[in-house]
Design a protein around this nucleic acid. Structure first.
Lengths: 225, 225
DNA sequence: GCAAAAGTGTTTGGGATACACCCATGC
DNA sequence: GCATGGGTGTATCCCAAACACTTTTGC
Protein backbone atom coordinates (compact mmCIF):
# COMPACT_ATOMS: atom_id res chain seq x y z
CA UNK A 1 0.00 0.00 0.00
CA UNK A 2 1.41 3.34 -0.97
CA UNK A 3 1.53 6.54 0.98
CA UNK A 4 -1.07 9.09 0.09
CA UNK A 5 0.46 12.44 -0.66
CA UNK A 6 -0.37 15.22 -0.16
CA UNK A 7 -2.07 14.10 3.01
CA UNK A 8 -5.81 14.67 3.13
CA UNK A 9 -7.44 13.64 6.35
CA UNK A 10 -10.87 12.05 6.61
CA UNK A 11 -13.76 14.22 7.73
CA UNK A 12 -14.35 14.09 11.47
CA UNK A 13 -17.96 13.98 12.60
CA UNK A 14 -19.57 13.59 15.99
CA UNK A 15 -22.83 11.90 16.97
CA UNK A 16 -24.69 11.63 20.24
CA UNK A 17 -26.83 8.82 21.61
CA UNK A 18 -28.95 10.53 24.24
CA UNK A 19 -31.14 8.26 26.32
CA UNK A 20 -34.00 9.12 28.57
CA UNK A 21 -36.37 7.08 30.67
CA UNK A 22 -40.04 7.59 29.86
CA UNK A 23 -42.20 5.67 32.29
CA UNK A 24 -40.94 2.12 31.81
CA UNK A 25 -39.26 2.62 28.46
CA UNK A 26 -35.78 3.61 27.42
CA UNK A 27 -35.86 6.17 24.61
CA UNK A 28 -33.31 7.79 22.28
CA UNK A 29 -33.22 11.31 20.90
CA UNK A 30 -33.46 11.36 17.09
CA UNK A 31 -33.69 14.11 14.49
CA UNK A 32 -35.33 14.06 11.11
CA UNK A 33 -32.80 14.89 8.42
CA UNK A 34 -33.88 17.56 5.93
CA UNK A 35 -30.81 17.37 3.70
CA UNK A 36 -29.19 14.73 1.60
CA UNK A 37 -27.93 12.18 2.16
CA UNK A 38 -30.79 10.36 3.81
CA UNK A 39 -33.14 13.37 3.63
CA UNK A 40 -36.36 12.46 5.40
CA UNK A 41 -34.74 9.72 7.45
CA UNK A 42 -34.31 9.81 11.19
CA UNK A 43 -30.78 9.96 12.54
CA UNK A 44 -28.73 10.67 15.62
CA UNK A 45 -28.04 14.36 16.27
CA UNK A 46 -24.49 15.33 15.33
CA UNK A 47 -22.40 17.00 12.67
CA UNK A 48 -18.97 18.06 11.60
CA UNK A 49 -16.06 18.65 13.93
CA UNK A 50 -13.67 21.41 12.88
CA UNK A 51 -9.98 21.83 13.69
CA UNK A 52 -9.59 23.61 17.00
CA UNK A 53 -12.72 22.07 18.48
CA UNK A 54 -12.66 19.06 20.72
CA UNK A 55 -15.17 16.47 19.65
CA UNK A 56 -17.28 17.16 22.71
CA UNK A 57 -17.33 20.89 21.97
CA UNK A 58 -18.42 20.23 18.41
CA UNK A 59 -21.07 17.83 19.64
CA UNK A 60 -22.39 20.31 22.16
CA UNK A 61 -22.84 22.95 19.47
CA UNK A 62 -24.46 20.64 16.93
CA UNK A 63 -26.86 19.07 19.38
CA UNK A 64 -27.92 22.46 20.72
CA UNK A 65 -28.51 23.76 17.19
CA UNK A 66 -30.56 20.81 16.10
CA UNK A 67 -32.50 19.87 19.19
CA UNK A 68 -32.07 22.71 21.71
CA UNK A 69 -30.74 20.14 24.16
CA UNK A 70 -27.75 21.47 26.07
CA UNK A 71 -25.33 18.63 26.68
CA UNK A 72 -23.57 20.35 29.54
CA UNK A 73 -26.59 21.43 31.55
CA UNK A 74 -29.34 19.01 30.50
CA UNK A 75 -27.45 15.75 30.74
CA UNK A 76 -26.26 14.28 34.00
CA UNK A 77 -23.88 11.88 32.39
CA UNK A 78 -21.95 11.75 29.12
CA UNK A 79 -19.11 9.57 27.92
CA UNK A 80 -17.31 8.73 24.74
CA UNK A 81 -18.67 5.58 23.17
CA UNK A 82 -16.66 4.49 20.16
CA UNK A 83 -15.22 5.84 16.93
CA UNK A 84 -16.86 4.47 13.81
CA UNK A 85 -14.70 4.73 10.72
CA UNK A 86 -15.63 2.36 7.95
CA UNK A 87 -14.93 4.11 4.69
CA UNK A 88 -18.36 3.66 3.14
CA UNK A 89 -20.51 4.65 6.08
CA UNK A 90 -21.13 8.13 4.63
CA UNK A 91 -21.99 8.31 0.92
CA UNK A 92 -20.45 11.80 0.69
CA UNK A 93 -16.96 10.56 1.50
CA UNK A 94 -14.89 9.06 4.22
CA UNK A 95 -16.12 10.27 7.59
CA UNK A 96 -14.81 9.15 10.95
CA UNK A 97 -17.52 9.56 13.57
CA UNK A 98 -16.63 9.95 17.22
CA UNK A 99 -19.74 8.97 19.15
CA UNK A 100 -20.88 9.79 22.66
CA UNK A 101 -23.53 8.42 24.95
CA UNK A 102 -25.49 10.34 27.56
CA UNK A 103 -28.47 10.09 29.85
CA UNK A 104 -31.19 12.32 31.11
CA UNK A 105 -34.63 11.97 32.56
CA UNK A 106 -37.71 14.01 31.86
CA UNK A 107 -35.97 15.93 29.13
CA UNK A 108 -38.24 17.34 26.44
CA UNK A 109 -36.55 18.77 23.35
CA UNK A 110 -37.88 22.31 23.10
CA UNK A 111 -37.06 23.08 19.50
CA UNK A 112 -33.94 23.45 17.44
CA UNK A 113 -33.63 23.72 13.69
CA UNK A 114 -34.55 20.09 13.05
CA UNK A 115 -37.64 18.08 13.79
CA UNK A 116 -36.66 15.94 16.73
CA UNK A 117 -38.20 13.46 19.13
CA UNK A 118 -37.47 10.65 21.51
CA UNK A 119 -38.17 7.14 20.26
CA UNK A 120 -38.33 3.95 22.32
CA UNK A 121 -35.18 1.93 21.62
CA UNK A 122 -37.27 -1.12 20.88
CA UNK A 123 -39.50 0.59 18.34
CA UNK A 124 -37.39 2.93 16.26
CA UNK A 125 -37.95 4.07 12.69
CA UNK A 126 -35.45 3.11 10.01
CA UNK A 127 -32.32 5.14 10.57
CA UNK A 128 -29.74 6.85 8.37
CA UNK A 129 -26.10 5.74 8.07
CA UNK A 130 -25.05 3.05 10.56
CA UNK A 131 -26.91 4.77 13.37
CA UNK A 132 -28.94 1.75 14.29
CA UNK A 133 -25.75 -0.17 15.04
CA UNK A 134 -24.43 2.76 17.04
CA UNK A 135 -27.55 2.82 19.20
CA UNK A 136 -27.38 -0.92 19.76
CA UNK A 137 -23.80 -0.57 20.85
CA UNK A 138 -24.69 2.35 23.15
CA UNK A 139 -27.42 0.39 24.81
CA UNK A 140 -25.11 -2.51 25.53
CA UNK A 141 -22.56 -0.15 26.97
CA UNK A 142 -25.17 1.53 29.13
CA UNK A 143 -26.26 -1.86 30.40
CA UNK A 144 -22.79 -2.82 31.47
CA UNK A 145 -22.17 0.63 32.95
CA UNK A 146 -25.17 0.14 35.20
CA UNK A 147 -23.76 -3.12 36.49
CA UNK A 148 -20.47 -1.77 37.76
CA UNK A 149 -21.04 1.95 38.35
CA UNK A 150 -23.68 4.20 39.89
CA UNK A 151 -24.56 5.56 36.44
CA UNK A 152 -28.31 5.05 36.97
CA UNK A 153 -28.39 8.46 38.58
CA UNK A 154 -28.19 9.81 35.03
CA UNK A 155 -31.63 8.42 34.22
CA UNK A 156 -33.39 9.56 37.38
CA UNK A 157 -34.55 12.78 38.97
CA UNK A 158 -32.71 13.99 42.03
CA UNK A 159 -35.39 12.39 44.18
CA UNK A 160 -36.91 9.10 43.19
CA UNK A 161 -38.71 6.10 44.56
CA UNK A 162 -37.22 2.63 44.77
CA UNK A 163 -39.75 1.46 42.21
CA UNK A 164 -38.55 4.09 39.76
CA UNK A 165 -35.00 3.01 40.41
CA UNK A 166 -35.86 -0.60 39.75
CA UNK A 167 -37.78 0.38 36.62
CA UNK A 168 -34.70 2.16 35.30
CA UNK A 169 -32.64 -1.01 35.61
CA UNK A 170 -35.39 -3.10 34.07
CA UNK A 171 -35.73 -0.75 31.11
CA UNK A 172 -32.02 -0.87 30.36
CA UNK A 173 -31.53 -4.57 30.99
CA UNK A 174 -34.73 -5.48 29.20
CA UNK A 175 -35.91 -7.90 31.88
CA UNK A 176 -37.70 -7.82 35.20
CA UNK A 177 -36.00 -8.04 38.57
CA UNK A 178 -37.18 -9.38 41.93
CA UNK A 179 -38.38 -6.52 44.10
CA UNK A 180 -37.14 -7.77 47.45
CA UNK A 181 -33.74 -8.83 46.19
CA UNK A 182 -33.33 -5.60 44.30
CA UNK A 183 -33.98 -3.49 47.38
CA UNK A 184 -31.81 -5.60 49.64
CA UNK A 185 -28.90 -5.44 47.23
CA UNK A 186 -29.25 -1.74 46.54
CA UNK A 187 -29.45 -0.82 50.18
CA UNK A 188 -26.32 -2.86 50.73
CA UNK A 189 -24.43 -0.75 48.21
CA UNK A 190 -24.84 2.35 50.37
CA UNK A 191 -25.31 4.66 47.39
CA UNK A 192 -28.63 6.22 48.38
CA UNK A 193 -30.35 7.65 51.43
CA UNK A 194 -33.95 8.45 52.36
CA UNK A 195 -34.95 12.08 52.01
CA UNK A 196 -37.82 11.77 54.48
CA UNK A 197 -40.23 12.98 51.83
CA UNK A 198 -42.86 10.79 50.26
CA UNK A 199 -44.37 10.65 46.83
CA UNK A 200 -48.06 10.00 46.41
CA UNK A 201 -49.92 9.35 43.20
CA UNK A 202 -52.80 7.06 42.48
CA UNK A 203 -54.87 4.92 44.76
CA UNK A 204 -52.17 3.23 46.75
CA UNK A 205 -49.67 3.63 49.52
CA UNK A 206 -47.24 6.57 49.05
CA UNK A 207 -43.57 5.80 48.37
CA UNK A 208 -40.48 7.02 50.17
CA UNK A 209 -38.29 9.35 48.13
CA UNK A 210 -34.59 8.60 48.00
CA UNK A 211 -31.55 10.53 46.73
CA UNK A 212 -28.06 9.51 45.69
CA UNK A 213 -25.25 10.27 48.09
CA UNK A 214 -22.97 11.25 45.22
CA UNK A 215 -23.65 12.62 41.76
CA UNK A 216 -20.21 11.74 40.51
CA UNK A 217 -19.73 8.61 38.46
CA UNK A 218 -18.27 6.07 40.85
CA UNK A 219 -17.15 2.54 40.20
CA UNK A 220 -18.77 0.11 42.60
CA UNK A 221 -16.84 -2.31 44.78
CA UNK A 222 -19.18 -5.13 43.92
CA UNK A 223 -20.87 -5.39 40.58
CA UNK A 224 -24.61 -5.05 40.45
CA UNK A 225 -26.77 -7.80 39.00
CA UNK B 1 -19.80 30.13 19.40
CA UNK B 2 -19.67 30.78 15.67
CA UNK B 3 -19.51 28.33 12.86
CA UNK B 4 -16.11 27.85 11.34
CA UNK B 5 -16.15 28.28 7.58
CA UNK B 6 -14.72 27.02 5.34
CA UNK B 7 -14.67 23.76 7.24
CA UNK B 8 -11.22 22.41 8.00
CA UNK B 9 -11.17 19.12 9.84
CA UNK B 10 -8.68 18.21 12.52
CA UNK B 11 -5.86 15.86 11.61
CA UNK B 12 -6.66 12.22 12.33
CA UNK B 13 -3.89 10.14 13.78
CA UNK B 14 -3.74 6.58 15.05
CA UNK B 15 -1.67 5.06 17.86
CA UNK B 16 -1.23 1.51 19.09
CA UNK B 17 -0.62 0.21 22.58
CA UNK B 18 0.84 -3.24 21.99
CA UNK B 19 1.42 -5.34 25.08
CA UNK B 20 3.41 -8.47 25.49
CA UNK B 21 4.20 -10.70 28.42
CA UNK B 22 7.90 -11.13 29.12
CA UNK B 23 8.41 -13.63 31.90
CA UNK B 24 6.44 -12.05 34.73
CA UNK B 25 6.26 -8.53 33.35
CA UNK B 26 3.80 -6.75 31.12
CA UNK B 27 5.60 -4.70 28.47
CA UNK B 28 4.61 -2.12 25.84
CA UNK B 29 6.05 -1.56 22.39
CA UNK B 30 7.61 1.92 22.03
CA UNK B 31 9.52 3.69 19.28
CA UNK B 32 12.15 6.36 19.55
CA UNK B 33 11.09 9.45 17.61
CA UNK B 34 13.68 10.88 15.25
CA UNK B 35 11.67 13.91 14.13
CA UNK B 36 10.21 16.93 15.83
CA UNK B 37 8.12 17.30 17.82
CA UNK B 38 9.55 15.28 20.69
CA UNK B 39 12.61 14.14 18.68
CA UNK B 40 14.58 11.72 20.81
CA UNK B 41 11.64 10.88 23.01
CA UNK B 42 9.97 7.51 23.16
CA UNK B 43 6.40 7.24 21.95
CA UNK B 44 3.71 4.83 20.88
CA UNK B 45 3.92 3.64 17.28
CA UNK B 46 1.38 5.37 15.06
CA UNK B 47 0.93 8.12 12.51
CA UNK B 48 -1.46 9.92 10.23
CA UNK B 49 -4.67 8.47 8.92
CA UNK B 50 -5.63 9.56 5.40
CA UNK B 51 -9.06 9.81 3.82
CA UNK B 52 -10.05 6.46 2.36
CA UNK B 53 -8.20 4.47 5.02
CA UNK B 54 -9.93 3.05 8.03
CA UNK B 55 -8.08 3.84 11.21
CA UNK B 56 -7.09 0.23 11.61
CA UNK B 57 -5.68 0.12 8.08
CA UNK B 58 -3.67 3.26 8.72
CA UNK B 59 -2.43 1.83 11.99
CA UNK B 60 -1.43 -1.43 10.40
CA UNK B 61 0.69 0.38 7.81
CA UNK B 62 2.34 2.75 10.26
CA UNK B 63 3.18 0.10 12.81
CA UNK B 64 4.64 -2.17 10.15
CA UNK B 65 6.78 0.67 8.77
CA UNK B 66 8.12 1.71 12.12
CA UNK B 67 8.49 -1.57 13.98
CA UNK B 68 8.05 -4.38 11.46
CA UNK B 69 5.27 -5.73 13.64
CA UNK B 70 2.33 -6.90 11.56
CA UNK B 71 -0.86 -6.16 13.43
CA UNK B 72 -2.92 -8.67 11.50
CA UNK B 73 -0.63 -11.66 11.75
CA UNK B 74 1.47 -11.00 14.85
CA UNK B 75 -1.24 -9.97 17.26
CA UNK B 76 -3.87 -12.32 18.54
CA UNK B 77 -6.13 -9.62 19.80
CA UNK B 78 -6.75 -5.98 18.92
CA UNK B 79 -9.48 -3.55 19.86
CA UNK B 80 -10.21 0.12 19.71
CA UNK B 81 -9.37 1.85 22.95
CA UNK B 82 -10.43 5.49 22.96
CA UNK B 83 -10.20 8.63 20.86
CA UNK B 84 -8.05 11.36 22.39
CA UNK B 85 -8.85 14.80 21.08
CA UNK B 86 -7.72 17.61 23.32
CA UNK B 87 -6.69 20.50 21.10
CA UNK B 88 -3.22 21.02 22.58
CA UNK B 89 -2.04 17.43 22.70
CA UNK B 90 0.02 17.87 19.52
CA UNK B 91 2.12 21.06 19.25
CA UNK B 92 1.83 21.00 15.45
CA UNK B 93 -1.91 21.50 15.47
CA UNK B 94 -5.14 19.90 16.43
CA UNK B 95 -4.86 16.12 16.09
CA UNK B 96 -7.51 13.62 17.03
CA UNK B 97 -5.91 10.30 17.86
CA UNK B 98 -7.85 7.07 17.56
CA UNK B 99 -6.02 4.57 19.74
CA UNK B 100 -6.00 0.78 19.72
CA UNK B 101 -4.84 -1.85 22.15
CA UNK B 102 -3.45 -5.26 21.31
CA UNK B 103 -1.66 -8.23 22.82
CA UNK B 104 0.94 -10.69 21.79
CA UNK B 105 3.40 -13.00 23.45
CA UNK B 106 6.98 -13.69 22.53
CA UNK B 107 6.96 -11.02 19.88
CA UNK B 108 10.33 -9.49 19.07
CA UNK B 109 10.32 -6.40 16.84
CA UNK B 110 12.64 -7.32 13.98
CA UNK B 111 13.38 -3.90 12.60
CA UNK B 112 11.44 -1.12 11.00
CA UNK B 113 12.57 2.39 10.22
CA UNK B 114 12.52 3.51 13.86
CA UNK B 115 14.44 2.33 16.88
CA UNK B 116 11.92 0.33 18.84
CA UNK B 117 11.73 -1.83 21.91
CA UNK B 118 9.41 -3.25 24.53
CA UNK B 119 9.48 -1.54 27.91
CA UNK B 120 7.95 -2.84 31.15
CA UNK B 121 4.82 -0.82 31.86
CA UNK B 122 6.04 -0.11 35.37
CA UNK B 123 9.42 1.23 34.27
CA UNK B 124 8.94 3.32 31.14
CA UNK B 125 11.03 6.23 29.92
CA UNK B 126 9.46 9.67 29.66
CA UNK B 127 7.05 9.64 26.74
CA UNK B 128 6.02 12.10 24.05
CA UNK B 129 2.56 13.67 23.81
CA UNK B 130 -0.04 12.25 26.21
CA UNK B 131 1.15 8.72 25.52
CA UNK B 132 1.76 7.91 29.15
CA UNK B 133 -1.92 8.56 29.92
CA UNK B 134 -2.94 6.45 26.93
CA UNK B 135 -0.88 3.51 28.16
CA UNK B 136 -2.30 3.84 31.66
CA UNK B 137 -5.78 3.80 30.20
CA UNK B 138 -4.95 0.78 28.03
CA UNK B 139 -3.65 -1.16 30.97
CA UNK B 140 -6.81 -0.53 32.95
CA UNK B 141 -8.91 -1.63 30.02
CA UNK B 142 -6.84 -4.77 29.58
CA UNK B 143 -7.30 -5.55 33.25
CA UNK B 144 -11.04 -5.31 33.06
CA UNK B 145 -11.13 -7.25 29.79
CA UNK B 146 -9.38 -10.13 31.50
CA UNK B 147 -12.02 -10.21 34.19
CA UNK B 148 -15.02 -10.72 31.94
CA UNK B 149 -13.63 -12.22 28.73
CA UNK B 150 -11.17 -14.92 27.70
CA UNK B 151 -8.78 -12.26 26.37
CA UNK B 152 -5.78 -13.77 28.17
CA UNK B 153 -5.27 -16.01 25.21
CA UNK B 154 -3.81 -12.93 23.51
CA UNK B 155 -0.88 -12.90 25.90
CA UNK B 156 -0.07 -16.61 25.76
CA UNK B 157 1.34 -19.11 23.32
CA UNK B 158 -1.01 -21.68 21.87
CA UNK B 159 0.15 -24.14 24.50
CA UNK B 160 0.88 -22.97 28.00
CA UNK B 161 1.14 -24.14 31.57
CA UNK B 162 -1.26 -23.15 34.31
CA UNK B 163 1.56 -21.29 36.00
CA UNK B 164 2.10 -19.20 32.88
CA UNK B 165 -1.60 -18.52 32.74
CA UNK B 166 -1.65 -17.39 36.33
CA UNK B 167 1.43 -15.25 35.76
CA UNK B 168 -0.34 -13.47 32.90
CA UNK B 169 -3.19 -12.48 35.19
CA UNK B 170 -0.81 -11.43 37.92
CA UNK B 171 1.21 -9.27 35.53
CA UNK B 172 -1.86 -7.43 34.28
CA UNK B 173 -3.59 -7.10 37.66
CA UNK B 174 -0.37 -6.18 39.41
CA UNK B 175 -0.95 -8.52 42.35
CA UNK B 176 -0.50 -12.16 43.24
CA UNK B 177 -3.28 -14.75 43.20
CA UNK B 178 -3.81 -17.92 45.19
CA UNK B 179 -2.68 -20.92 43.16
CA UNK B 180 -5.35 -23.38 44.26
CA UNK B 181 -8.23 -20.96 43.95
CA UNK B 182 -6.97 -19.79 40.58
CA UNK B 183 -6.85 -23.30 39.17
CA UNK B 184 -10.18 -24.31 40.63
CA UNK B 185 -11.88 -21.25 39.21
CA UNK B 186 -10.26 -21.50 35.83
CA UNK B 187 -11.09 -25.16 35.41
CA UNK B 188 -14.66 -24.30 36.29
CA UNK B 189 -14.86 -21.86 33.41
CA UNK B 190 -14.34 -24.64 30.89
CA UNK B 191 -12.20 -22.51 28.59
CA UNK B 192 -9.15 -24.73 28.38
CA UNK B 193 -8.25 -28.37 27.97
CA UNK B 194 -5.15 -30.48 28.56
CA UNK B 195 -3.08 -31.24 25.47
CA UNK B 196 -1.49 -34.32 27.02
CA UNK B 197 1.94 -32.84 26.45
CA UNK B 198 4.19 -31.68 29.24
CA UNK B 199 6.69 -28.92 29.52
CA UNK B 200 9.92 -29.48 31.39
CA UNK B 201 12.54 -26.91 32.27
CA UNK B 202 14.71 -26.61 35.34
CA UNK B 203 15.12 -28.89 38.28
CA UNK B 204 11.53 -29.54 39.14
CA UNK B 205 8.43 -31.45 38.20
CA UNK B 206 7.28 -30.96 34.58
CA UNK B 207 4.03 -29.10 33.94
CA UNK B 208 0.99 -30.10 31.91
CA UNK B 209 0.46 -28.06 28.77
CA UNK B 210 -3.02 -26.64 28.17
CA UNK B 211 -4.70 -24.97 25.20
CA UNK B 212 -7.75 -22.74 24.84
CA UNK B 213 -10.87 -24.29 23.40
CA UNK B 214 -11.60 -21.15 21.42
CA UNK B 215 -9.41 -18.42 20.01
CA UNK B 216 -12.30 -16.07 19.53
CA UNK B 217 -12.91 -13.34 22.05
CA UNK B 218 -15.78 -14.59 24.19
CA UNK B 219 -17.58 -12.90 27.03
CA UNK B 220 -17.66 -15.11 30.11
CA UNK B 221 -20.85 -16.04 31.94
CA UNK B 222 -19.31 -15.33 35.28
CA UNK B 223 -16.70 -12.67 35.75
CA UNK B 224 -13.23 -13.73 36.70
CA UNK B 225 -11.58 -12.42 39.86
C1' DG C 1 19.14 -35.35 49.61
C1' DC C 2 17.90 -30.93 48.47
C1' DA C 3 16.16 -27.17 45.88
C1' DA C 4 12.41 -25.70 43.00
C1' DA C 5 8.15 -25.48 40.83
C1' DA C 6 3.85 -28.58 39.95
C1' DG C 7 -0.07 -30.17 41.71
C1' DT C 8 -4.02 -31.06 44.97
C1' DG C 9 -9.10 -30.38 49.07
C1' DT C 10 -11.54 -28.66 52.74
C1' DT C 11 -13.68 -25.30 55.53
C1' DT C 12 -16.08 -21.09 56.06
C1' DG C 13 -18.68 -16.89 55.22
C1' DG C 14 -21.27 -13.91 52.35
C1' DG C 15 -23.92 -12.79 48.52
C1' DA C 16 -27.37 -14.46 44.97
C1' DT C 17 -31.76 -16.52 44.29
C1' DA C 18 -36.30 -17.96 45.11
C1' DC C 19 -40.47 -17.04 47.15
C1' DA C 20 -45.71 -14.66 49.54
C1' DC C 21 -47.95 -11.69 52.29
C1' DC C 22 -49.45 -7.25 54.75
C1' DC C 23 -49.76 -1.96 54.32
C1' DA C 24 -51.47 2.62 53.03
C1' DT C 25 -54.04 5.01 50.01
C1' DG C 26 -58.03 6.77 46.48
C1' DC C 27 -62.23 5.97 44.90
C1' DG D 1 -64.35 -2.84 50.39
C1' DC D 2 -61.55 -3.26 46.66
C1' DA D 3 -58.00 -2.26 43.53
C1' DT D 4 -53.32 -0.63 43.28
C1' DG D 5 -48.62 -0.30 43.95
C1' DG D 6 -45.41 0.11 48.43
C1' DG D 7 -43.00 -2.36 51.51
C1' DT D 8 -40.87 -6.40 54.11
C1' DG D 9 -37.81 -11.66 55.77
C1' DT D 10 -36.14 -16.31 55.42
C1' DA D 11 -34.10 -20.56 53.67
C1' DT D 12 -30.97 -22.38 50.38
C1' DC D 13 -27.12 -22.76 47.41
C1' DC D 14 -23.10 -21.66 45.28
C1' DC D 15 -18.99 -19.16 44.85
C1' DA D 16 -14.97 -16.74 46.90
C1' DA D 17 -11.37 -16.76 50.17
C1' DA D 18 -8.16 -18.69 53.27
C1' DC D 19 -4.90 -22.04 53.99
C1' DA D 20 -0.24 -26.39 53.71
C1' DC D 21 1.53 -30.34 52.19
C1' DT D 22 3.00 -34.03 48.68
C1' DT D 23 5.04 -34.98 44.00
C1' DT D 24 8.37 -34.95 40.40
C1' DT D 25 12.27 -33.58 38.58
C1' DG D 26 17.70 -31.91 37.95
C1' DC D 27 21.76 -31.58 40.06
Amino acid sequence: MQKISPYTPPIVTVDAVIFRLNQTELEVLLIKRNEEPFAGSWALPGGYCAAGQTTIEALSIKVREKTSVDIDSDLKYMEQLYTFDTVDRDPRGHAVSVTYMGCSRDLEPKGGNSINAFYPVDRMPKLAYDHEAIIRYARERLGSKLTYTNAVYGLLDDKFTLSQLQTAYEAVFGRTLDKRNFRKKFHGLGLIHETGETWREGAHRPAQLYAFNSKELDVLDKSFD
